[in-house]
Design a protein around this nucleic acid. Structure first.
Lengths: 249, 249
DNA sequence: AATACACATGCATGTTTGTGCATATTTAGT
DNA sequence: ACTAAATATGCACAAACATGCATGTGTATT
């Protein structure tokens, strides 16, 4: 076993249990306690863990996990989803499209939320399985490699039987006249189906996506009920949408 | 063997195993360890892998890699799936049930495999989206929180339209008379559907699962064509299955 | 065809690194 | 303060390493 492997294992263990004992590690990795101590010292020297007598503990708080950092404009998206959460009542039926904003929304859902969530996004479905009160139903079909969402006829058929309270639709572009647009034809058709089955349709674009367009039309603006951005609701950028009768959060 | 071929092999190996040892590579590729070290150095210099003492490891953080480490009896399962890979031909249609062994099989699939894979497991679908030649279709339905697989009528209906070449069925218990059994009723029913749509059914139990049983019956032994364990095919523990007419790998 | 040249590879060399053990010292908990 | 466990330190040894050099192999130039 490579030294690096031990280090990874130790870090993993610290992350999971908050502490490790030299003696246990020595046994589990079948090396001497001296070696473990040296490992712990090295990891401690670069600030990955905190060495204590008998083992090591978690160091500081890691501000954002790796995945969080990957999300583009993470801070803004958190602002958005904070506002979105209030839209989800207990016992409601939710349709959740893919996209990083929706994934973040899923992450931030209260753990005690009781709801039924339909989704076609693999990462979102995985995230939902950590919410004990949420019944998750995955709408199957062909998986788009990049977006990691299911699309196509299978999904569309699936949706046909659903009457949801609210649908969070992933939004690549939105325009106050043209509505929501996207660039993948298959994904577009699927999104249309998602939208058609929900009483309330919510779009959560970053402000930079406002009044941009893509080749394919997902939905006219009238079909969208609520729009949430990281901006304050009274921001002038949103005036056109307010005039069009949308709820702004 | 050309240098470039070695490099490809090494990268593939790192992707699959998370690490490589100079000594092993030297043997397997029958070149000196010096050459391997030079290879690793070159790959490391361009950032493809990370060189460490004794070998190399994968470079960046790979999501879910920490979960892989947690897989029970990981070594044995790698042994199993190595044998299983040869069963998957290019352009075949595969049905992949959930479970850690099947997940490992998915991870070890060659990156250039061309195939269509139906699965009801979220982690497996995610893994498959990293294989450019694989068309992934997720069979949707209610998600079981623990197993992270879809079950129920939706899946069963989905399967009805499929005629697959081969089905890898997750196996919690198998018995040479009783067949495959499991403890979750809904999962059991789903597995029955998966089995019914494939020409060849493959079960990959750890040897410790042989001749154990669970409350619910998934499949009679006659419906299983191939059984793969970490044991050598001629191990006496497998005699009963051989007599029952199963292919043993 | 002959030559030059770049490159890949294996081997010999001396060096560095990782590990375990023995010993002395420090620490934490009664 | 006393004691057992944990730690630090020095040492020994093997494995992994870098380096220079000789050989082979293929390609381009004359």
């Amino acid at each position: 076993m490579l030294k690096q492997e031990r280090h990874n294992y130790i870090l993993e263990e610290v992350r999971k249990q908050n502490k490790v004992l030299s003696s246990e590690l020595s046994q589990k990795l079948s090396v001497s306690e001296d070696t473990i101590r040296r490992d712990l010292k090295e990891l401690s020297d670069v600030g990955q863990i905190k060495k204590v007598h008998g083992g090591a503990m978690q160091n500081g708080y890691i501000p954002f996990s790796h995945k969080d950092r990957e999300i583009y404009a993470h801070e803004e998206k958190v602002t958005i989803v904070r506002k979105a959460i209030q839209l989800i009542q207990d016992d409601s039926v939710v349709v959740m499209d893919g996209g990083t904003t929706n994934l973040e929304l899923t992450r931030q859902l209260p753990l005690d939320l009781k709801a039924t969530v339909f989704t076609n996004s693999l990462p979102i479905a995985l995230q939902l399985s950590e919410h004990p009160g949420v019944e998750t139903i995955f709408m199957g079909g062909k998986i788009l490699r990049n977006a990691q969402v299911a699309v196509g006829l299978d999904v569309i058929n699936f949706v046909a039987d659903i009457h949801a309270d609210i649908c969070f639709i992933g939004t690549r572009s939105i325009h106050h006249v043209i509505g929501i647009t996207d660039f993948d034809r298959e994904e577009t058709q699927t999104k249309q189906a998602l939208i058609s089955c929900a009483r309330q349709v919510v779009s959560m674009p970053l402000s930079e996506k406002l009044n941009t367009t893509q080749p394919f039309k997902v939905s006219p603006i009238e079909r969208v009920h609520t729009i949430i951005t990281e901006l304050a609701p009274d921001n002038p950028l949103l005036d056109n949408y307010r005039k069009a009768g949308l709820q702004i959060l």
